[in-house]
Amino acid sequence: MSGPVGAARWALLDAVAITGRDISHWVRRPLPVVVTLLFPVMTVVLFGYLLGGAIDVPGAGNYFDYLLPGMFALTMAFGVEATMLAVITDAAKGVTDRFRSMPMASSAVVVGRCSADMLSSALGLLVLVGCGLAVGWRWHEGWAAAVAAVGLLLLLRLALLWLGIYLGLLSKDPGAVIAVQILVWPLGFLSSAFVSPQTMPGWLGAIADWNPLSATANAARELFGNPGWGGDSWMAEHSVLMAVVWPLVLIAVFAPLSVRRYQRLSR
C-alpha cells in the first residue's frame, strides 16, 4: 500500500497501537489509575463536606452545585502531570528513541498519547459526574447543554495535554513532574473552582477572573444551570466564549512548540 491514503491508514493504525499500549499500562498497573480517578472524588468530599459549610458563594444555595463544575475543570488540569510523566518516562527509558528509529508515522506517538490521555480523562470525568450525582449535584438545562459542557471540559483537557507534552519534552527530570503537581494547586485556588473571585482581594480576583480554569468552570456552570460566581466582569459574562478561546489559544501556542521540540531531539 502506498500514497497518501496508505500513509494515513498506517498513521491511524500506529496511533491505535500506541493508544493500546497505554490501555495495557492501565490493566497491568491499575493502582495509579484508580488513585487518579478517586483523587478528585476525595477532593469533592473534602471541600464539600469539611469546608463547604464555611464557604459562602454569592448566589449559590448548595455549595456542591457550585463546587462540582469547578472540580470538573480542576480535574482536567490534574491531567497535565500524567501526560508530562508519560512523556518523560518514555524519553528516559529510551522508548522515544526506539520509536524514532522505527519506520512508523511520527505523528502516531503524539496522536496516540492524545487519545489515551483523553480517554482516561473522559473516564475520570464520568466517575466525578457519578460522584456529583451521589452528593446531590444536578444539571438543569437538559442533555444538550450538559453534553456541550462536557465538550468544553474535554477541550480544556486537550489544550492542557499539549502543555503537558511540551513540558515533558522540555524537562528530562521526573522531579519536574512533582513541581507541576504542586503548582496545579495554586492555579486551582486562584480560579473560580472553589470560591468566587469576587470574595478575593481585587488583584487576585482579577487573576482568578482571567484564569482559563475559571472560564471553563463558569461555562460549565452556565450550561449545567448551576449557580455562577455572580461576578459582572467581562470574563464572567462571556465565559462560554472564553472557554472556547482559551483552550484554542493554548493549543495554538503549545502544539507547534511541542512539534518543534520533538524535531529538535535530533539536534
Binding site: 493504525l13 500506541i18 499500549r21 498497573r29 527509558k93 529510551g94 520509536f99 512508523m104
Partner: peptide
C-alpha cells in the same frame, strides 16, 4: 541502554513493536 517498556510484558513489547513495523 535497553529501550523497552518496563510496565508491559516482554511479549507485549514485541507485539507493540511488531504492529508499529506494520
Amino acid at each position: 541502554h535497553a529501550a523497552i517498556d518496563e510496565i508491559l510484558s516482554g511479549r507485549q513489547n514485541l507485539e507493540l513493536f511488531g504492529r508499529l513495523y506494520h
